[in-house]
Amino acid sequence: MTAPFHVLFLCTGNSARSILAEAIMNREGKGRFIGHSAGSRPTGAPNPFALSLLQREGFDTSFARSKSWDEFAAPGAPKLDFVFTVCDSAAAEECPYWPGQPVSAHWGLPDPAAVEGSDAAKALAFAETYRALNRRIQAFAALPIATLDALTLKARLSEIGRTE
């Protein structure tokens, strides 16, 4: 594998967690990593709370769209180096065949879009999800990928996925 590494974040709806992860990866990856996101059953639009949070954090959200994971299995799609599921339902689904056999791991987090109640409660759930993803992505981006064998890399990615 050589940089830049293409990283796909998967979730069922591709409206919240995976969108946040894509944005964070593109910032924290500093050109070494290129983040993408997709869903098995995309909702059709990013969650407004996700977009609002990203804008407050200084992200340009023009990239954000809810898209099918089929885009990344189609001819001409970027060659994926890593695939992370960020929701339990996407992890349980049978994924498409990813050319090149990317390294994968499950980084499941509760769905902030499922939180009910006040807008403040929803915004807090999105902020907690953002912080967790940011920590995990920073840890991932700091890995010495070129010096790790495949088994060690897979183990480290699984460890990162258990980080709260």
Rank of each mutant, 00 (worst) to 15 (best):
E28A: 15
F5V: 01
G13W: 00
R32A: 14
D70S: 15
A105G: 12
T43Q: 13
L109D: 00
S15M: 14
S66H: 06
S66T: 09
V103G: 01
K154L: 07
L53N: 00
A146V: 13
R65K: 15
T147C: 06
A139W: 06
L10R: 00
E93S: 09
P99D: 03
M25E: 01
T163I: 08
P112N: 04
S18M: 05
D81W: 02
L20M: 15
A23W: 12
P42A: 08
C95Q: 15
D60Q: 06
P78M: 13
A127F: 07
A142K: 11
Q55E: 15
P99L: 05
A120P: 01
G29P: 13
L133M: 08
L20K: 07
A120H: 04
T152N: 12
G31N: 05
A73D: 07
G76Y: 10
F5Y: 15
A132G: 06
L153G: 11
A74L: 13
A38H: 06
E159Y: 09
T85S: 10
L151Q: 11
A113F: 04
F5P: 02
S104P: 03
T129K: 05
L54V: 08
E93V: 04
Q101W: 06
K79L: 15
P144Y: 02
L153Q: 08
K67N: 14
R131H: 10
T163W: 09
S104V: 02
A23R: 06
G58P: 09
S40E: 04
S52M: 08
K79S: 11
R56P: 01
V115M: 02
F84W: 11
A74I: 12
H106G: 10
S15H: 12
S104E: 05
S104T: 11
S40N: 12
E164N: 10
A113Y: 03
L80T: 02
A120N: 04
A77E: 05
Q55C: 05
E164A: 09
E159D: 14
S52A: 15
R17V: 09
F140M: 07
L153M: 11
L51D: 01
E22Y: 12
A38S: 03
A50G: 08
G117F: 10
I34D: 12
P144R: 07
L8G: 01
C95M: 14
R136N: 03
D88S: 15
A64M: 06
P110T: 03
E28C: 15
S18I: 01
S52P: 02
T61C: 13
E94Q: 10
A50I: 01
Q138I: 11
F33K: 03
P4T: 07
E93D: 07
G44C: 13
S15I: 14
W69E: 13
P99V: 05
G29Y: 10
E159R: 15
L53C: 00
T147K: 10
A114F: 05
T12Y: 02
L80W: 00
S89G: 08
S52R: 14
A132C: 08
A3M: 02
L109P: 00
K122P: 00
G31V: 04
L133G: 05
T12Q: 01
L54F: 11
L20Y: 10
